[in-house]
Design a protein around this nucleic acid. Structure first.
Lengths: 340, 340
DNA sequence: GGCGCGAGTGTAAGCGCTTACATTCTCATC
DNA sequence: GATGAGAATGTAAGCGCTTACACTCGCGCC
């Protein structure tokens, strides 16, 4: 078929079309500045040669990459998948490409990934959560790279955020649980160190207990990584207590699903013997039986809005205001009303 | 804190260290070629200035990006997550960065993404499945960009593959199902058009029927997209038949979980009233009740081996042989032994 | 007819890095 | 001490593109 002639460059196209490289470049980047006839000639040459611009060269000359980097804590489960998908679709619609990296919930790795994405010329960055070493924000500030934090709403922070109030969300769910007559409440929390969402959720639950006259410090809490297996194991540990908790509230749905499995393994029925709640409302929570009562988070909207907001900053249409999204309690079968 | 002085370049470092740019570059890329003392001086300057190499420039000069692109059909569910994670870890360990894009199972989008990744200078590409427009392979060949297909094993193809034999895997599972006494078998397949895995699995099942004297052409098959909801709906459609199938075999676990939900909605018990099988053995299949009988696929191993193989080609240590991985039938509760 | 003007196009200077090749230095050897 | 091999470092030529600036040309106007 075709020979091995090397990849065509702008020069080749210019020569083929009988114009200068500047004209070819203009055809590609701002076609309205080139007269119809010339443009056609150039486009034909582009087509004929199968020309694709060299990204590195373009970046170097233009100082823009039309690339947005996103670093999420994990790809292993679906927590961030929906939002990320929406994020990427919105980016795509606006002519940007998404680079994804994952940090495995480790600040060190996240930092490394940030540097990698910056080195690759990301025009902007999406991060999950907001608490991190100030040096990182400084690093980004010096390089004038906009950052946006999602999954949290922190209107007072220097950097814009697009998300919801984790603390309040958990307080609301906690209140609901208490209204249902639960008093012996235990929690399986994510690792709070270096994770502001996990911390906020824990604090939010304590808020709820406190404002209902329940001793929040006495609440059994175990922190563990966000995995189904650890959720199951931790649940069983919490159920050793005497008296047993009537409800185990989990830092997210993955843990809740794990807890559910843990309960089943112990021969406990949910919600008859014990209630379980989650957080995030990922698909998983509707797959299990009973379905999990959780906090619904507007994943897609968050992804979309984050993309909008970030690009607005990158393109200097805005300087970055935070956007608050609403979360809602999603009642399902895993939470029992003890008053019923 | 720090001022807004612009980002330092190689030149700045060279000047600060009192050496040439070449020496700085060598310090960074092949330190052993620079004498200890000089290296220290340079590294100090790098540190002091907070220098980070400019990726675009480096790419342009070196013609290498140390970037591998991967295009997976979907990020929405966890099918490819585990393998991808392993893939990226292995890449990371070898100094490469992963760029991920998703194609939503659409060849057009995949093609677009391939071009985007190539334009960004990917040194190699990981794709899922093997059947695609030859023009794409030609495009990559001209640009000397190695491709590797995962999730399939096709020793005869031009491009290397790392995966398993989808057809045989499904045949084996089908045989098992038949051995369990099932004769009225229906299938919920993924969309076979443009998806060689889906096609191979369907063919594999037909193989099994045929070699057991069951009319494969008479088997009810409905193709649908890989979503839980469509799995549920399709299941219910298949169960309209009279006589009903005794087993509904699904093209993957997502469909199987959907089918399970469909069954529950109809008031059918699995596996007492009807059996269900899946494919891929993602976490989901162990979360639902009953757990899904499925084909176990070595996700992590596939990811790791794919990374190894691809980098070996990129670095010209190999010209790319295919690697076959073994899949196994994973017996769980959703398949009933009618002989029992 | 000469002039100025703006639209369309060309010229060429970088962008920040790597690396082939040239130069200088170091030392063991005679 | 002169010599030469090799190690260490420097010089400078690009890599493929964008874009500021220069140039050309056709046109309407005085």
């Amino acid at each position: 078929m075709s020979d091995l002639r090397s990849v065509p460059t702008l020069d080749d196209v210019a020569r083929a079309a009988g114009v200068s490289t500047a004209t070819v470049s203009r055809c590609l980047n701002s076609p309205e500045r080139v007269v119809e006839q010339t443009r056609k000639r150039v486009m034909n040459a582009v087509e004929a040669l199968g020309y694709t611009p060299n990204f590195g060269a373009r970046v170097m000359a233009a100082k823009r990459t039309f690339t947005i980097g996103a670093i999420i804590p994990t790809m292993e489960n679906a927590i961030f998948a929906r939002a990320l998908q929406a994020f990427q679709e919105e980016l795509h619609a606006r002519g940007y490409t998404l680079l994804v990296a994952s940090s495995a919930y480790q600040p060190k790795i996240e930092e490394e990934q940030i540097r990698a994405l910056v080195a690759r010329g990301a025009d902007g960055l999406l991060l999950i959560g907001h608490d991190r070493d100030p040096a990182i924000y400084e690093y980004l500030r010096v390089r004038s790279i906009p950052v946006l934090s999602a999954w949290v709403y922190a209107p007072d922070s220097e950097q814009p955020t697009v998300g919801f109030d984790n603390r309040r969300s958990m307080r609301v769910l906690g209140q609901q649980v208490i209204d249902f007559g639960h008093r012996r409440i235990a929690m399986i929390s994510g690792i709070t160190r270096g994770n502001d969402r996990a911390s906020a959720r824990l604090v939010g639950l304590r808020d709820a207990l406190q404002s209902n006259g329940i001793d929040a410090d006495a609440m059994p809490v175990i922190e563990t990584s966000y995995e189904i297996d650890t959720g199951a194991a931790t649940f069983q540990k919490l159920m050793q207590a005497d008296p047993k908790p009537t409800v185990v509230m989990c830092g997210n749905d993955v843990l809740a699903v794990g807890a559910l499995r843990g309960a089943r393994e112990m021969g406990l029925n949910v919600p008859e013997d014990v209630s379980i709640t989650g957080f995030d409302d990922i698909e998983l929570s509707r797959i299990v039986t009973p379905q999990i009562t959780t906090v619904h988070v507007p994943h897609q909207e968050m992804g979309r809005k984050a993309a909008e907001a970030l690009i607005d900053i990158v393109e200097k249409r805005s300087t970055g205001a935070s956007v608050e999204l609403k979360s809602t309690v999603q009642m399902r079968g895993s939470l029992r009303n003890l008053n019923g």
